[in-house]
Design a binder for these strands. Structure first.
Lengths: 298, 298
DNA sequence: GCGAAGCCATGCAGAACTGTATAGCGGATC
DNA sequence: GATCCGCTATACAGTTCTGCATGGCTTCGC
């Protein structure tokens, strides 16, 4: 037997959850505030439990509502993906593709690739979602992901790009002023740029190269901020070798500090027959390969 | 900006897709046929493309509709999971838990475990989904899965049960009549029971023990059918050792033919705080462990 | 301490949607 | 070849739902 809870109620429910009030949710959905209120009331009646505590400042979710949130978000993601898929039907490469990548890749590497892609396909739209968390694809938050770990889910199509090397770099002017470190011990005299709150990957990496959080004189969680600091000569820090080459940064202690990120492009297999996704997938693969190849020739 | 396609339309769309006609979809949804027709028309208008070709025998989906189906199903799964989660809110162990497992496990092993669980928690409802495909959990088609492969997805909570051994077995009466094979070559004189269309696992297993499809005199894709054939003395076939012990089946060529299935119980991490899922998870783990331990003592 | 802004709840008129009934068509069955 | 069954499409009446306007409340800023 099919349940008789209207899906429309879930949408209002989620909007209230994210916006924090009936009025704000109504604005976001483009409907009237009393309507949202009635939807929430109807959902509470249908589920047989209260979901929010009303107040004059808005609605605050009860635990019950919070626990339902991930599922409502899954519905929204699927609905959004469905619209993207529908908008791209028909012949030719057209419609919207959502691409997710890390901040560094998304800012430093992807833009020229995407620009070229757009040049070839004028009806293609790209949405770039930069995030370091990577639980996106199966939730349909994005169509294609550039990831630094081998994907292990069966339902995904993956193509390996190769290993992006990461090393310690500094600006030439900085090294001319402070000298070039020749050993790990020399680093103590330098301004080290590193993480503040380490992510899982960074923790593992830091262990493998034996650098502790305390070693860093300049700390920033944002990889982009770290890169900007290195680039303007603030000190010595980690960045991807291909980017460093392009920027004319000088690598130091290459033998001692060497990490590499296995890079993959991943797509949900449901999108295999989507022209826009295939084209984007291939363009990203080719562009990233060229980006990596730059190291060998540069 | 939020899209303004009503989620309710997707539900009617999916019902038409699965039922094959407006009338049948209307019956399944408990609404009137013209309403479903209007929903589909509204969705086609909203998406700007036709989705079905109308005929007097029903609606047949166009390619565009078929390609959107997985996403609509994702929405339905999430909606169903949301209702399950909501129904189980509150103190105590209550509500519905959907458990998925292979056919053999679901029929031969789980029933007594579930019966005991129900004895302890009268307000608990269990839905058993038997299927050999295992892409269920992340799509929220089930809450808990019993699987034969190590789960590799981060968002899942997994507990390893152990290895279930699989071996060649026959009924005692069969062996008394046809003799007990002492070598792999002896098997040629026996009625071998095996697969028809091999699944991925079976292919790998068959390779490892060097048995080809042609070797089987009785073929059935259903593991349950194979088990039933062995059980009634029709021939020699593969089945799980703990089940064979319980049934009094005799293992043959134990040294030569030996496989084992690594067994896991898996749950989405979102359900960690759900009492009903935790209890079911633990009961399944304990029951399956006991089932395996039977081998040692039996 | 006072006004402005934001919020929720309610009454009411209008719009939108739903359900019932029916006509028309095609395929299956005897 | 006639009948029955199931399907879609349309007309129409009723109900439901939505949006607007308003009242009452709290919080924030001056």
């Amino acid at each position: 037997m099919a349940s008789h809870i209207e899906w429309e109620l879930y949408r209002s429910f989620l909007a209230v959850l994210t916006e924090g009030s009936l009025s704000a949710a109504a604005r976001a959905l483009g409907i009237a505030q009393p309507t949202v209120g009635r939807h929430v009331a109807a959902l509470e009646r249908a589920l047989g439990m209260p979901l929010f505590t009303r107040s004059q400042t808005g609605l605050s979710p009860l635990e019950s509502a919070s626990s339902l949130r991930p599922l409502a978000e899954a519905m929204r993601s699927a609905a959004a993906a469905l619209e993207r898929a529908a908008a791209s039907q028909g012949a030719g490469v057209r419609g919207v593709v959502r691409v997710t990548a890390s901040e560094v890749i998304g800012v430093e590497v992807l833009p020229p690739i995407i620009a070229g892609l757009r040049e070839a396909h004028r009806d293609l739209r790209i949405e770039l979602v930069l995030s370091n968390r990577m639980q996106d694809l199966l939730q349909r938050e994005a169509d294609i992901a550039v990831r630094m770990v081998r994907p292990d889910q069966k339902a995904l199509i993956a193509r390996r790009i190769g290993r992006i090397e990461v090393g310690l770099h500094a600006r030439r002017q900085y090294l001319e002023r402070h000298g070039t470190p020749e050993s790990a011990a020399d680093l103590e005299a330098h301004t080290l740029i590193g993480f503040d709150q380490p992510s899982a990957f960074v923790r593992a990496a830091a262990r493998s190269i034996s650098l502790q959080r305390e070693a860093f004189a300049l700390r920033a969680d944002s990889d982009l901020a770290q890169l900007a600091l290195i680039r303007c000569g603030a000190g010595v820090g980690f960045c991807q070798v291909p980017i460093a080459r392009r920027e004319g940064l000088v690598r130091v202690l290459a033998r001692r500090f060497r990490l590499s990120l296995d890079t993959w492009i991943v797509m949900h297999e449901d999108l295999r027959n989507s022209a826009r996704c295939r084209v984007t997938f291939d363009a990203l693969a080719e562009g990233l390969r060229a980006h990596l190849a730059q190291v060998a020739s540069g």
